[in-house]
Design a protein around this nucleic acid. Structure first.
Length: 406
RNA sequence: GGCCCUAUCGUCUAUCGGUUAGGACAUUACCUUUUCAAGGUAAGAAGCGGAGUUCGACUCUCCGUAGGGUCACCA
């Protein structure tokens, strides 16, 4: 059993492609087969080496491991040429003299104009009448094959048994089957995946939906590879149980093409966030802390000056006067102690006075946010000077308010 | 428009003829003295419409309707 992922290096790796690669990988691994990758760079003007490198590196990051050698279609023109000649010699294709277009002598496939039916693993029986395809082009010239010819040849030569790809390819399938038949290749088993949709239910596309369609966008936002894999696996597939958080190994063990959805699925970053959070929780504490700190970079309440609402500063029923006392004590601890034992001292004090009474106003004074990570992390990120400054400011504000009140 | 595909809460989905239609994300409310990008409890929220098949349809068939994909010398 061999599955494949054939990206075209004309842009950064797309979320939809990631899922397609993942499903091919999971299916192959589940059945002890092989997962291969091949670069479809027959479009010489749009293909770029940097995109290829990015895609390959992305797969490594995700933990999707390819096997076998990496084919480049651009290096296989002699092979395609051989098959092109065979087709022409057999009368299954012919050189067509065009009156329009750049290339005057394209190679066209002689369409037998028949009905082509295939059993799709996800959709069941699908039938097309190929007549409307007419004598479609399979090469720009004898040295320059078009996608349809190249895929069929490569899949056959690589021994690909299962073609799992996006639904947008379903209408290409009859063409491919026709070429396979003309060349005497065996027919692989097809499975067409439902598309990943944007919130407007249209296919996710760079043109329409911008950066949010590329894996790099989410990677830069700090999402874990495990979370991307987990979430994407759940888009259009489910194990039939109520488990939602999976490791790659678990996915491989439970993956089943028969449980794939037929309709498209909208990509929901909110749920991705939740999946990501669940994976973070399963990490060792030091890793979690590192991630937390990293994710806080650029947080508005850390970068700019926090706006304080004095009413929110004291915890619950605590008065402003008492809050001032608590904050001044913390201020003292921070300015006198060395930073490494400050958290311990504050905690000890807070436990004596009531954790909420002390910790809440400290955290709020530092961030101006009613929800944020704990005060100690904030303290560490802000540093001694900045933290002291913010605490002093809060204390001053409280004192001024008291004067006004009385 | 032709061809193809699809159709359960806002979203991802369970259900393979008989269920108070289940779960998760999100939302809302409440709780929590807060080492908390948190946790807990609760609530609201769905079978596109119409025929048929059947004792019985979310589930099967057909017809509508809606949405999507595709119609390149791009992959």
């Amino acid at each position: 059993m061999i599955t494949r992922f054939p990206p075209s290096p004309t842009g950064p790796l797309h979320i939809g492609n990631v899922r397609t690669a993942l499903f091919n990988y999971l299916f192959a691994k589940k059945h002890g087969g092989q997962f291969i990758v091949r670069i479809e760079d027959t479009d010489k003007t749009r293909s770029k080496k940097e995109y290829e490198d990015d895609m390959l590196e992305s797969l490594v990051w995700l933990g999707i491991k390819r096997e076998g050698e990496l084919w480049h279609q651009s290096e296989r023109t002699e092979i395609y040429k051989k098959y092109l000649h065979k087709l022409i010699d057999d009368g299954k294709a012919y050189i067509s003299h065009e009156t329009e277009g750049e290339n005057r002598e394209v190679v066209r496939f002689k369409n037998p104009n028949k009905k082509v039916a295939f059993d799709d693993l996800i959709r069941g029986a699908v039938e097309f009448d190929t007549t409307e395809l007419e004598d479609f082009i399979i090469a720009r010239n004898i040295d320059d094959p078009v996608y349809h010819l190249a895929v069929v040849v490569d899949d056959a030569e690589a021994g690909v048994t299962h073609i799992i790809r996006g639904e947008d390819h379903i209408s290409n399938t009859p063409r491919h089957i026709l070429i396979q038949e003309a060349l005497g290749f065996p027919r692989p088993i097809y499975a067409h995946l439902p598309l990943i949709l944007a919130s407007d239910k249209s296919k996710l596309s760079k043109r329409k939906h911008g950066e949010a369609v590329s894996l790099n966008y989410y990677r830069a936002k700090g999402y874990l590879p495990e979370a991307m894999v987990n979430y994407l696996a759940l888009l259009g597939w489910n194990p039939g149980t109520e488990q939602e958080i999976f490791t790659m190994e678990e996915l491989i063990g439970q993956f089943d093409l028969a449980k794939i959805q037929k309709g498209g699925a909208i990509f929901d970053e909110k749920k991705l966030q939740w999946v990501n959070k669940e994976h973070i929780k399963r990490l060792p504490p030091e890793e979690q802390r590192k991630l937390l700190v990293k994710s806080l970079e650029g947080e508005p309440y850390l970068v700019g000056e926090p706006e304080l609402d004095l009413e929110k500063l004291p915890w619950k029923k605590v008065s402003k006067e008492e809050t001032v006392v608590y904050l001044e004590k913390v201020l003292e601890i921070i300015s006198s102690g060395n930073m490494s034992r400050v958290p311990l001292d504050i905690m000890r004090y807070a436990e004596r006075e009531g954790k909420g009474n002390v910790l809440w106003p400290v955290r709020y004074a530092l961030t101006g946010a009613t929800a944020s990570p704990d005060p100690f992390i904030i303290l560490e990120i802000l540093g001694k000077e900045k933290s002291l400054g913010r605490l002093e400011k809060a204390i001053m504000a409280l004192k001024n308010a008291e004067i006004k009140d009385s």
